[in-house]
Simulated scan of single mutants.
Amino acid sequence: MPKAPKQKVSKKVVHPNSRKASQISRHEAHRDRVQKNKSKAAKGMQQLRTVLEWFHERCTAESYSQDDVCDLIEEYISRFDDELEEIRLASTLKGRQVRPHASREDALRMVREKELALLTTGGFDAPDLTDAKNLALFRAWDQKVDHIPTFKMRKFRRTQAPEPE
């Protein structure tokens, strides 16, 4: 029966002001920084995945023009309108001055305003459905996060978007 490999266990105590101590602390800080960046990137990919899943469900046409994609983006931006309307109705029925779902309503309204501002000024990042190859690739997507970088993304801008409510 083969022997188990011996593990190195340092029994020496490292002086806090030594070069070895600073090397160990740099190594730990580097490992923490890399782990933090990995988790941040994974979170961003998951958020992008939810956006792409929404577009994937509604991608039915054979080809899209820039205006068609902008219309699709506006539909994406208005995805919370029904919930906002329900919250408004619930707050008017109670007859009280206190809004029962104020934080949720404010969060949804802020998301809508931010996305609408992106569409009108800076550009809303969406899959480039105007390109035929990218559209075919996007339709064949199996909704795995690993395949997201293969899509060509593009910033779409609408000069005249609907006014926020």
Rank of each mutant, 00 (worst) to 15 (best):
E115C: 10
S91V: 11
Q46T: 12
R88G: 13
P162F: 04
N134V: 04
S18Y: 13
N17A: 11
F156P: 00
R157K: 14
T92Q: 14
R88Y: 13
R139I: 01
K38P: 00
E85I: 07
A140R: 15
S103N: 13
R158W: 09
R31G: 02
W141C: 03
M45Y: 10
R157E: 03
L135I: 00
A102P: 02
R19F: 06
R31N: 10
S10V: 11
S39D: 14
P2L: 05
E57A: 12
E28G: 02
A61E: 09
D106R: 12
R104T: 14
I77W: 00
S10K: 07
S22G: 00
R157W: 01
Y64D: 00
G123F: 06
K152P: 00
G123H: 07
T92C: 07
E115Y: 07
G122I: 01
H101C: 05
L116Q: 08
V9L: 12
P149F: 07
E85C: 05
A136S: 14
A61S: 03
R139Y: 05
G44M: 10
K20Y: 08
H147Q: 10
Q97C: 05
F124C: 01
T130M: 06
A140K: 15
A126S: 08
H27T: 14
A161G: 07
A41S: 08
C70W: 00
S63R: 11
W141L: 04
K11G: 14
K152I: 03
T121M: 06
M1R: 12
S63W: 04
K38E: 14
R99D: 12
L116P: 05
R79F: 02
V13G: 01
R104I: 12
E115S: 10
D82C: 02
F80E: 09
M1P: 06
H30W: 04
E75I: 05
M110N: 10
F80G: 04
L52C: 15
R31V: 12
I24E: 15
M110E: 08
E62V: 09
Q23W: 06
E165M: 06
I87Q: 03
L116E: 03
H101L: 11
T60V: 08
I148E: 05
M153G: 04
V98H: 10
E165T: 00
E75L: 09
F124S: 00
G123Y: 05
T60G: 08
D67G: 04
R79N: 07
K43V: 01
Q47S: 11
T60W: 11
P149N: 06
E28H: 14
A61W: 02
E165Q: 09
H56V: 04
P149Q: 05
H15T: 08
E86D: 11
L84T: 05
Q66K: 14
K94Y: 13
H147L: 04
T50F: 02
